[in-house]
Simulated scan of single mutants.
Amino acid sequence: MRCPFCGSLDTQVKDSRPAEDGTAIRRRRICPDCAGRFTTFERVQLRELTVLKKTGRKVPFDRSKLVRSFEIALRKRPVDEERIERAVSGIVRRLESSGEVEIPSEQIGLQVLESLKALDDVAFVRYASVYRDFSHAEDFEKVIEEINAKIGRDHALD
């Protein structure tokens, strides 16, 4: 592993432990050349995924973009980082195990919406406003009505 500080190729692992509910390994590393310390994560990758954009363009799947989408939608919301990581890992696992190599971006967006709906209603509305391209206040009202209907059903089951 290359040192991010000095570029040396000779780094050493000082500590390894499971992370992300056992789906990754967290490694603490040190560079003997500059004494820099850093952390790496190893994850199982079942297959190389490609995202098929609405324009027809194909780009490699980037997990960090998925994480960033969650972080933006959940900014200043009381949702634990661990729950976000579980949601992201779940989406990635579903995509990798789907058997498809090319995943339409719309499919990823729908999975993010479903996950956000379970995590936080405000984040769901934020993401939906961009994903569904809201242009009027009525668009927000429709989504809020959906959420209120869901809350009403949930309370009726109690």
Results as ranks from 00 to 15, higher is better:
76 K>Q: 04
21 D>A: 14
8 S>G: 15
139 D>G: 07
22 G>E: 02
20 E>T: 15
112 V>D: 04
28 R>V: 11
125 V>S: 00
150 K>E: 13
110 L>G: 13
3 C>P: 13
158 D>K: 11
110 L>T: 07
142 K>D: 06
41 F>W: 09
110 L>R: 12
57 R>K: 15
40 T>Y: 09
18 P>M: 01
113 L>A: 02
108 I>D: 01
6 C>V: 10
136 H>L: 12
133 D>H: 12
33 D>T: 13
152 G>L: 02
32 P>K: 07
45 Q>E: 14
102 E>G: 00
32 P>D: 03
146 E>Q: 12
79 V>Y: 08
14 K>H: 07
103 I>K: 00
158 D>S: 13
118 A>S: 14
95 L>G: 02
138 E>D: 13
26 R>D: 04
78 P>E: 10
87 A>V: 09
30 I>V: 15
107 Q>S: 10
121 D>S: 15
130 V>Y: 06
121 D>L: 02
124 F>N: 01
87 A>H: 07
44 V>E: 15
89 S>E: 12
71 E>F: 05
149 A>K: 14
106 E>D: 14
145 E>T: 06
50 T>G: 01
6 C>P: 07
19 A>C: 03
100 E>Q: 15
90 G>E: 08
87 A>C: 08
68 R>N: 10
89 S>I: 09
60 P>N: 00
19 A>Q: 06
127 Y>R: 05
40 T>R: 05
138 E>V: 09
144 I>R: 04
129 S>T: 08
125 V>I: 14
48 E>F: 13
26 R>Q: 13
77 R>Q: 07
141 E>S: 15
2 R>D: 12
17 R>N: 03
86 R>K: 15
127 Y>P: 00
96 E>G: 00
141 E>Y: 09
72 I>W: 01
94 R>V: 08
119 L>V: 09
108 I>M: 03
142 K>G: 01
65 K>I: 01
22 G>V: 03
13 V>E: 08
89 S>W: 06
157 L>Y: 07
158 D>M: 09
55 T>I: 01
52 L>V: 15
128 A>V: 09
27 R>L: 00
138 E>K: 14
125 V>C: 01
150 K>H: 04
130 V>Q: 07
136 H>C: 09
31 C>D: 05
3 C>S: 01
70 F>K: 06
98 S>E: 02
